[in-house]
Write a protein that binds this DNA or RNA. Structure first.
Lengths: 365, 365
DNA sequence: CTTAGATATTAAACCGGTTTGATGACGCTC
DNA sequence: GAGCGTCATCAAACCGGTTTAATATCTAAG
């Protein structure tokens, strides 16, 4: 080799146009930057400059490189690039959830789709892990952080006393909490206020004339469960309405039905119930109906999520809708800018929508 | 440096025990294999041998290496490893679906969870992409294949005349079709026969006495939609029952309701309807009820999927359940063994279950 | 005709692993 | 004590990119 490590073909004095055949590498391997460089009669560095939009490349050289890339169908190897730049252009999402509960959840798929729509234009990828318990969860984050597979992680379904904010801080990994900011937390957070939906629900019911409103909570230990429950309490208090003790449940239909019966068994049963999600609300409607009550005449019901089924049942469900897709997109953009620039500014999220359908009505007089 | 590129600390003649402090690298960077080697007083190669379980390392050296790894909390960098081995230990899943339809689907989250449970023990990761249309879908596969990010991909929601089997073959990337084998296809496939659930449904209805059974199809163009529709036709034919033209729909509640009305508007409406998914079935029940019919007395309804809501509504839905989690796990294992060994043998999947609830009953005489 | 300055270009080092071929130490046999 | 095989160990090359520092070329100014 006379000149340069990088030249793979063509004699040192040969003309540019001399090489016609793409110098495809021996085996079935994909082309490398070296192949592109050889075909374009430039060095690897020049190719690198071209694809990274760095100055100092003549228009002619640039064009030859682009042609070569095109001809070979080359694309930089993600691993090699990550090795050099120390950035994997990948974010991580760890879902901790008993697998059988996953299909219940309208949030997960939409949120993932939202993340994707935010990530794709930026050239980022998403690695996903689903883990069953807290121990595996910890290991998952540690592995992702230490083997350099991701530049940052999302923290979803935050629990009260969640160990993960401390964990990611300790691991020195960029992270974004998907949910309302934690007071005192050092980890940035992006999320709509769950409470506003619940307040809208209570205010809607009150304006219909309800004064005795119950609440069926989500699974204990989650920040958003508490947020919804507290918002309900606060809304009642603000409206000067009396409080029935909220009934604990866990987002499943069975728990929703049971909690409903519990409320309806009270000496003075509520005329309206606000559920922490649609699934429990629908199960609640079924439970109430089975006792001979009619919804909404005898009992008004409000859900949360606006799942696709919400308007396919009788009566169609009044509920709270969040733009989860937009949330995911914003979260993706926020986490990327966090890992890249270091700066985080909370994006504006579309507010929750309150969807009035037919499961709410004025109470019987 | 007297001996060896790899030694980072300790004089050449120093005793093994001389070094107490971990030779942590300057900045905040994570430890590398070189740091481990230095701490354990061995070469990088020896460390590599230890973590890859290769022979030729003395018990003493192995122990020192393990101690050093432990002390530094080291973990091999995924990108670097991928660069050397040309294997990323990562699989790809591309979902092409209009984002707003995603939350409808009980399959996706469960399947992903299943993949994870199969992948995690093998040390593999999953990268996920959600794309809106065919063009982006193609680009997604091309990118994943060419930048070496994944060792193989799953192909889900196969369409009739799907371009992807040809695409992955052309790209030379390992792939697994999630679904029944395609006749004539070169791409291996793993999936339960959608038809068997539908046949179970028809046979159940026939044994109840139904002889006039309708079908509401899923979204056109999908292999599994056709499979369910054809299975329904076949089951009717086998049972010697007359066929009502199947009604096209698209898996959404609105379409399910409309299709139901269409069937009930017939001169001779069916006494039972088999739906391609639960969402349409539930919308169908609501539609029938709104016409004054009672389910199951006047109309029997069978769904498909067994979503969590299926037994929270009135009447609880008779439906077909697949063990999607097990399917995902098996698919993960199959694709890994495909990319590693090259050999593929179809694993046994648990058969579909037919869940009889209260939405089916003998027809009115 | 120099010379300085700007611009295009590249060789080589580097990222953090894996893998190979060479070397040295050791125990064994004859 | 020479010869040989085994085993542990390591230096160096390599994977495919990025980045730096040096060099080559061209232009404009003095």
């Amino acid at each position: 080799m006379v000149r340069g490590q990088d030249r793979a073909g063509g004699s040192a004095g040969g003309s540019r146009q001399a090489m016609v055949q793409p110098p495809r590498r021996g085996g079935g391997g994909r082309p490398t930057i070296g192949d592109v460089a050889a075909l374009a009669q430039v060095s690897k560095a020049t190719v690198s400059f071209v694809i990274n939009d760095r100055p100092g490349v003549s228009p002619q050289a640039r064009q030859r490189v682009l042609d070569a890339i095109d001809q070979l169908g080359w694309q930089p190897n993600a691993g090699a690039r990550a090795l050099s730049t120390k950035r994997s252009q990948t974010l991580g999402l760890v879902m901790r959830r008993p697998p059988e509960l996953l299909s219940t959840d309208p949030f997960f798929p939409q949120f993932v789709a939202g993340i994707e729509t935010g990530l794709a234009p930026l050239g980022y990828a998403l690695v996903l892990q689903v883990v069953p318990d807290e121990e595996t969860e910890r290991q998952a984050y540690e592995r992702l952080a230490r083997d350099g597979r991701v530049d940052g992680v999302f923290l979803t379904d935050l629990r009260t006393d969640d160990p993960r904010p401390a964990l990611v801080t300790e691991l020195g990994i960029d992270a974004l909490i998907v949910g309302p900011p934690q007071h005192g937390g050092r980890v940035p957070a992006l999320g709509v206020d769950d409470g506003s939906g619940v307040r809208r629900a209570v205010s809607h019911l009150r304006s219909l004339g309800h004064r005795w409103i119950g609440h069926v909570c989500g699974a204990a230990g989650y920040v958003h469960t508490e947020a919804r429950c507290n918002a309900w309490r606060g809304a009642l208090a603000d409206a000067g309405l009396p409080e029935i003790p909220p009934v604990p449940a866990d987002f499943t239909g069975a728990a929703g039905a049971q909690a409903t019966h519990q409320l309806l068994d009270l000496d003075r049963p509520p005329t309206a119930i606000v559920y922490a999600n649609d699934l429990m609300a629908i199960a609640g409607i079924t439970a109430a109906t089975s006792r001979g009550l009619r919804v909404p005449e005898d009992l008004s019901v409000v859900g949360f999520d606006d799942i696709p089924l919400a308007d396919c049942i009788a009566p169609p469900l009044t509920t709270v809708r969040q733009d989860v897709l937009a949330w995911g997109r914003a979260a993706a953009q926020a986490l990327v800018s966090l890992t890249e620039g270091g700066e985080f500014q909370a994006a504006e999220l579309p507010p929750v929508e309150f969807v009035v359908r037919a499961s709410t009505a004025p109470p019987r007089t």
